[in-house]
């Protein structure tokens, strides 16, 4: 009986995994098939001939690398912004007593109650006012606005897990407030910072809507909108190129995930269990 149940659970889990993984696997397989094999019926499961021609075309004949660079700059800058602001903000929310502290913390989440579509137009107009329209900076700011609130809450729950006595001890031991923050609080906060950074990076890397509205020249387009506009037109979708691009877009995330996965899961459980 017990073995059957175990088997059942395992089967169920594997089916879920397959469901989730299949599109990814198919994406990789498709990107390796030559154009002629792509639409064959019945489809070939494994490519009969493996080719890297799509990757090569993508890298040499399209602005893919520019988009890639833009995405890296965009996601990294946003992440740095969000982590720095989030850590300082969370510190303030946890350590200092001032009027309206809780209200402020709640209000910050208000952003998420409004659909992005509602926020985009005002944001766009603001960027124009600031002279930032059609720049990466405008996207960094926009991504920061929607990643920061969540980051603030995530970091706040981590910060609450850092005993105040630790900071007091550092102060008594002769550290300045900044020194205590750097020497004692930051190391304790590291898991929180890593999961916040991951979260922000992924969000920014995959973001589409803001990128679509706020920038419209190839020089500053990130991967998401860049690849779309490049490969998908009303009449034709370049499937093999699209798949190759998708694989390469996913690559950084997969690498980062593989290394920091344990931190991420810990971050999502932060409110419940303090490690």
């Amino acid at each position: 009986m017990r073995i059957l149940r175990k088997l059942g659970f395992n089967l169920f889990t594997w089916i879920l995994v397959l469901l989730v993984a299949f599109p990814l696997v198919w994406m990789i397989l498709t990107s390796l098939k030559p154009q002629t094999e792509l639409f064959r019926i019945p489809p070939t499961w494994l490519p009969e001939t493996v080719t890297f021609e799509h990757y090569w075309r993508l890298l040499t004949e399209t602005p893919f690398l520019i988009y890639f660079r833009n995405s890296v700059v965009l996601a990294t800058t946003t992440t740095v912004f969000v982590v720095v602001l989030g850590a300082i903000g969370a510190y303030s929310l946890v350590r200092f007593a001032y009027r309206g502290r809780e209200t402020l913390a709640t209000l910050v989440l208000f952003t998420y109650l409004l659909p992005s579509v509602v926020l985009i137009i005002p944001l766009y107009l603001m960027m124009v006012e600031l002279g930032l329209s059609n720049t990466l900076a405008s996207l960094v700011l926009a991504h920061t606005t929607f990643a920061l609130p969540y980051a603030l809450w995530l970091l706040r729950s981590f910060m609450e897990g850092v005993p105040e006595d630790l900071e007091s001890a550092a102060l008594v031991d002769g550290a300045s407030r900044m020194g205590a923050f750097r020497d004692v609080i930051l190391p304790q906060l590291l898991p929180g910072i890593i999961s916040t950074a991951l979260f922000t990076f992924i969000l920014s890397w995959n973001e589409y809507l803001y990128a679509l509205v706020l920038v419209n020249s190839d020089a500053v387009r990130p991967l998401t909108t860049g690849v779309m506009t490049m490969l998908i037109s009303a009449f034709n979708i370049e499937w093999s190129l699209l798949m190759a691009a998708s694989v390469m877009m996913s690559l950084p995330l997969i690498v980062v995930f593989a290394f920091l996965q344990s931190y991420l899961t810990r971050g999502f459980g932060a409110g419940a269990v303090k490690g």
Partner: peptide, 20 residues
């Protein structure tokens, strides 16, 4: 005067050892 400049040392109830 800031804590670090008072020429005092403190032992906390929680010990407050730096875990890292």
């Amino acid at each position: 005067v800031a804590p670090g400049k008072r020429d005092i040392a403190m032992v906390f109830q929680s010990y407050a050892l730096y875990p890292h």
